[in-house]
Design a protein around this nucleic acid. Structure first.
Lengths: 287, 287
DNA sequence: CCATTCCTGTATTCTTTATTACATATTGAC
DNA sequence: GTCAATATGTAATAAAGAATACAGGAATGG
């Protein structure tokens, strides 16, 4: 682990006695000691505040806030992925085939999500999705429509009034026109966020309908308008964001719902199966 | 995996919607995200500053500075002990909310899949999917069409000649008519297996085209006719089979492909982006 | 449906903290 | 030893940020 560039800069730039005091204080407790105020640092180094400021200017930070931001960045780097914070693992054997590496990486992502999970938020979504008189309308962005569709399909098996709204060219505001307080919208929005979706979300908000949002940890701007938000890490080995955690979230939602309304959903499932078989007994023709 | 006490306190005390927003922002980036100002936190959570303050009061910090100090203490604790004290605690607590249980269950499924993985099989599929003169045709059953579509979308970004074949009513054998040795089919088939897909697969076989299959560990009968098969466990907390592992497999495939043809795929991606922006500059109208 | 309670945001005030201006000390060269 | 140049501290000022008071709005229970 090479020393951070900032660390070296602090060390090499200290010239005069007071500056060296400042530098050594900084280095001793690097980087966490930088997380205080100028005056505290000054006191720790037994110098005056301006001296600290001047030194930092010298190493390239005209404003103290900039220096502190850099220090925080280093803290984050040292802590590594948030995963290490919550669940510190054995040294780990990473030398693997990309296939296995991907699977294991996603396994970790799931564990991280589980550790950070906030059941209350999750339950809030479930509450919205089980309300019997509501109509559930789902949509997503270019690459997350899939997810909306998947949830729609499964949800549609468990309860009535579920609509998947494809996000087609030109965009269909038809769904929005009829929207009212009785509706619950579910939006999937991941980077790069699509402005159309934000516009849509604002409309939802105005109509008085409820809004659930699935997004990445960077948080779509739609979050501001949502009643409940479920975020997921999306780090990936591929050039596209991972949808593994979201997929699991969707399944968890479905599981919770089918548990919540055990009877009604079981009946419904049975009935669907029945209807399907009914069709199968007829000679099925192609074309 | 004992999380710091502060971490748990944040999680458990969040009651109302706004507070939950605050809490999830805090948890996502714990503990470093606490190293900013109240207003930044408020903005990130899409709530007002006083709401943040009130929440922190609730979890026992009457002054923001106190909370921040506690967060910094946690940072130092984590940086201080290289091989963390966190993990040394309880080995496994399974009694959890269904949300967390689902995520953790899927994490295990992924680890299992990684352990059982056979890279050779994986590579075989990648080989088939990168061959430049081939046309890739993807399809899936009632509930796995999604997966086919997802793979198709991503694959289509990396290489030309990718077609998603929706499995519509009556079934379209159009795709099959033109099939020949130059084609590579990708089929997703999970329980309950659909007989139409099996019929289709036989047709593929006869045409001399290659066939990749994604299925569950129970192995679709199509496996018999496939050139390469990737199976996945599908245990789930919901009444439907889980698609988490498959999703990860798909992403691994995409990752491997984009790695294999680094240059061409990057160029292609850039070009797609370019074209998309081209469209964005025009005034886009709805309807 | 109404009243009450709790939640949440806006605007203001007050505190803390960074920054600057200036005076004083220190160092180094001649 | 004196001058110049640089380094440092003190004190005043400006900026940023935390805390508070209040008002509007949503949820809850009758």
């Amino acid at each position: 682990m090479a020393a951070p560039p900032l660390f070296d800069r602090i060390r090499s730039e200290a010239r005069s006695t007071a500056e060296r005091k400042v530098a050594s204080v900084l280095l001793e407790g690097y980087p966490t000691r930088a997380l205080t105020t100028v005056e505290v640092l000054a006191k720790q180094a037994s110098v005056s505040a301006p001296t600290v400021l001047r030194f930092l200017t010298k190493i390239g930070f005209s404003r103290f806030a900039d220096f502190q931001a850099a220090a925080i960045a280093d803290v984050e780097r040292q802590l590594g992925s948030p995963l290490n914070n919550i669940r510190s693992e054995a040294p780990a054997e990473t030398p693997h085939h990309i296939y296995q590496r991907t699977l294991l990486m996603q396994a970790e992502a799931l564990q991280l999500a589980a550790a950070q999970a906030m059941p209350a938020e999750f339950d809030a979504i479930v509450d919205l999705l089980v309300s019997p008189r509501a109509t559930i309308k789902l949509l997503g962005g270019r690459y997350s429509q899939n997810l909306a569709q998947r949830l729609a399909t499964q949800l549609g098996q468990l309860r009535p009034s579920v609509v998947f709204t494809p996000l087609t060219l030109g965009f269909a505001y038809d769904t929005l026109v009829d929207a009212g307080p009785q509706d619950v919208f579910v939006i999937f929005d991941y980077r790069r966020y699509q402005s159309e979706l934000l516009t849509f979300a604002r409309g939802v908000r105005q109509s008085g309908a409820r809004l659930c949002l699935f997004t990445d940890t960077w948080r779509s701007p739609i979050a501001e308008h949502a009643d409940a938000v479920l975020t997921s890490p999306d780090a990936s080995t591929s050039p596209f964001g991972s949808r593994v955690v979201v997929t699991a979230q969707i399944e968890a939602i479905v599981a919770a719902i089918s548990l919540r309304c055990r009877d009604s959903s079981r009946d419904r499932l049975a009935r669907i199966e029945e209807l399907r078989n009914l069709g199968a007994t007829e000679p099925s023709k192609e074309s």
